[in-house]
Design a protein around this nucleic acid. Structure first.
Ligand SMILES: [Mg+2]
Ligand SMILES: [Mg+2]
Lengths: 480, 480
DNA sequence: CGCCTGTTTATAAACAGTCAG
DNA sequence: CACTGACTGTTTATAAACAGG
């Protein structure tokens, strides 16, 4: 609550302020139109294809190969928008993957209840709710180069130091501590689309989003991003008309019958995710010198109560109450600062580091302590309580019992597993950091990777996206 | 955390200390046996029937009518146990309801992966995991009669005052505050069965439970309970091999394919719940005079921070820090003490009080404030945050949007709704409280009602169980 | 009895979107 | 019309109660 860098940086949500300029520049009745082409498939540049939905009327599917550039997507959507013009509503589903070999069929089962919604709007054709294409970009921060410590995980600590509120004893009144993050978060710029398009980073295009808005968002993002090294734009689909994400394509097949009273309440699988190159460009104020600052403002030196339940004492850590004049005196600690990952993400890192994708609780503890010294050295023992809480709470994590019934392992629901490991993150991080500065020239495509997307990439996409080579972190599946 | 009567009393879990005496008294190879009777249906007293499971081999279903007495259940199970004797494993599913008209079919879909488990045990026949029959009894506390204030909800406050830790400034080190509850909780005695039978109040008989244990638990409970007024024993089924409850029979139909590696991970619906009369008897130390004590130990009078986010101030309430010598000086407040219901339960009360079973957030707030003055007068504004949190968190609650898209309502997932209203609770409470004292003579059946069971009763059973008359609390479904 | 594992509830907070003033 | 703040909704973090082994 009042302690620690509450939420991992990477999961902070925010909006980009670019909405208007792009969204309004293409009012939708300007360019060339070849109005009637009701054939099965239209092809666009970069292999983008638009075809009729196999079962839903008034709906088409935009298949976007992984190699497509943002401009091509913009082009295809623009053309489609022009074609449809003002002929009333039409729905588009953005599909990702390598096109035809993406076998996650969004068949006629899970969205049969969502039709009636598009009738009420006449101001354009809609992007179907199921394809909440949030596009997330990992900006290459132009902080003074993080020198040599890139080969291990120290950058994690350094990167996540921006929300430690160097100003002294917390008066964070739930409003004051948002701006200070702004600049640092460029490290993980989260493009959410135009004002009406999206919700936030994970990606969510509501049912009412217009194609123009999507086009505008993509255009703005493309312009905004320069040519600074590789970047990758990830279009994510997620929860449909609801605003919640569900991890994995199931758990809704039994919900049809209840849809009579409303079109709400059915969740849509993350079947339409997409990632493709885009330009980028950031100028984050350099990380200056206050990096060594620890996140120790939560140790409440000597309170009146000292509850004893064993998971409530801090490990070492007695250097907490000398603040009120800190903020730059940087007592370079062994950098073990809180990593920017949620517990859920870390548990996935841990479990997926094993070949057999299962781990005991104790092993999860150990993996996390081994890979993030923060939890070994700094964190209060309550973090283990939180790990257990997360394991229980999220249906993503399933407990299995060994055949002899003696041991129990934690696994990840197979349909929901994106096989994320720390190496993926790390690899992309290394790939992103080393090179150039700025010069927003908007030309060469670049690739970014947004950690916020980790829960929502499909296995196939993960393979494509992370097919570089083997992961050195992947330890052996030794069952203790 | 360190504040408030943390968990509602009613949800406290504890075990009864009666295991051995009953469980050991029937070692399972004593009585008369008519070993072979493989016919389709066996009938026992009180209409209890035992029949073969339609699809699962080596499995039988015990159908228990609502009117059955515990003794009859014990008799049937004992006979069954004797019949099967030492012939190795056999599985019993306890089914509740009025027998045939309980249409919640536990068909061959959801438990197909649970067979292999019973093979490893040879020490008797098993009670199938799906029928976690927890039996819960609401003891009629023999506190000095609660005089005249029974006609409204004041008893709620009075009953729930036992965990307010009258001893001064909290040194509850996660161990100290369990015993003081013991006596008060007799108000909601939660019989969980023998040591090996159960898990806790909600009811959970693990797959490894033996029939003898169930018999023992029932026998002990029957003996323990005297003839004190109406009581009702509720057999609940719940989560199968997992230990989690899921609200409503669905959301697992897609989990079959993953069962190859283990038999875990599938949840079993609460299809087999049962309630039937049982004897009872309690002698709770009278509620004496310290009832007026408020639960205000959490107000932290004047801390260093006063975070401003609007939901963080207390309403009135300045009478908190005069403790350290309280515990009996009872400054009779307007009794608005924290009701013993979880947020989830209260939200269900609220929503189900409407005919159309839907409410806006604001209406939920209002309903709760109207029915529990604690939340209007005492609770910190953060309770509204908690309400929202619960609405979002639990899949039980579904948000719907009105046809015009202007308003959004919260509803309860139909398959999961047990249609609980505060009247049900209240009615049963009134029925339980008024009459006699003790005299544990163990004769006449009585009826108890366990509030812990509220999430796990099926609609049909709720109707039977609560079919007395209309509920005065059921306000009109005026959509604001 | 104390530790470890697991489930559930409570509470605070961050932050997004919407809407009314 | 832009800004602001209240309200609504989703998600994460943390502490705790309590059960069983
Ligand atoms: Mg889980
Ligand atoms: Mg919900």
């Amino acid at each position: 609550m009042r302690r620690s860098p509450t939420r991992p940086l990477i999961l902070k949500r925010r909006k980009l302020p670019f909405h208007q300029n792009a969204t309004d520049s293409q009012p939708g009745e300007s360019g060339s139109k070849e109005p009637s082409k009701p054939a099965a498939t239209q092809s666009f540049s970069d292999g983008i294809r638009i075809m009729d939905h196999p079962s839903m009327s008034d709906t088409q599917v935009v298949v976007i190969p992984e190699t497509a550039e943002v401009q091509s997507v913009i082009g295809a959507l623009t053309a489609k928008d022009n074609e449809c013009g003002a002929q009333g509503p039409n729905k588009l589903i953005l599909l990702s993957g390598s096109g035809s070999d993406n076998k996650w069929d969004y068949g006629p089962d899970s969205q049969s209840a969502a039709e009636g919604a598009a009738t009420r709007s006449t101001e354009g054709h809609k992007v179907k709710a199921e394809t909440t294409s949030s596009f997330t970009v990992n900006k290459d921060v132009t902080c003074n180069p993080l020198d040599d410590s890139l080969t291990d995980l120290h950058w994690l600590g350094k990167m996540s130091t921006c929300d430690l509120e160097p100003n002294s004893t917390k008066q964070l009144s739930s409003k004051e501590n948002q701006n200070p993050l702004q600049t640092f978060q460029n490290k993980f710029i989260l493009l959410s689309g135009s004002a009406s398009v999206n919700k936030w980073d994970y990606g969510f295009i509501p049912e009412t989003a217009e194609v123009q808005s999507v086009i505008g968002a993509l255009t703005a993002k493309d312009n905004e991003c320069g040519a600074q090294g590789p970047n990758k734009l990830i279009l994510l689909s997620g929860s449909g008309s609801g605003n919640k994400w569900d991890y994995g394509p199931d758990s809704q097949s039994a919900a049809e019958g209840a849809a009579t009273r409303s079109t709400e309440g059915h969740k849509v699988k993350a079947e339409t995710t997409h990632s493709f190159p885009v330009n980028k460009d950031v100028t984050c104020n350099p990380l200056d010198d206050s990096l060594g600052r620890m996140s120790t403002c939560d140790l409440e030196p000597n309170s009146t109560k000292q509850l004893s339940s064993k998971e409530n004492q801090n490990p070492l850590q007695t250097f907490q109450a000398h603040n009120t004049h800190t903020s730059a005196d940087a007592p370079q600690q062994p950098i073990s600062e809180r990593p920017p990952y949620s517990y859920m993400a870390m548990i996935q890192f841990a479990i997926n580091s094993r070949k057999n994708r299962r781990m005991t609780l104790k092993e999860i503890y150990m993996w996390i302590e081994d890979n993030f010294s923060y939890y070994r050295d700094v964190a209060k023992p309550g973090w283990k309580n939180s790990i257990r809480h997360n394991l229980s709470l999220h249906d993503l994590f399933i407990r299995e019992t060994s055949p002899d019934g003696k041991m129990s392992f934690w696994t990840i629901r197979h349909e929901a597993n994106r096989y994320l490991t720390l190496d993926h993150v790390y690899k992309h991080q290394k790939r992103t950091l080393p090179d150039a500065r700025k010069t927003p020239t908007s030309s060469a495509p670049c690739h970014a990777f947004c950690l916020s997307a980790i829960h929502f990439l499909l296995p196939a996409e993960w393979e494509q996206f992370t097919s570089s080579k083997e992961s050195p972190h992947s330890t052996e599946g030794d069952t203790k």
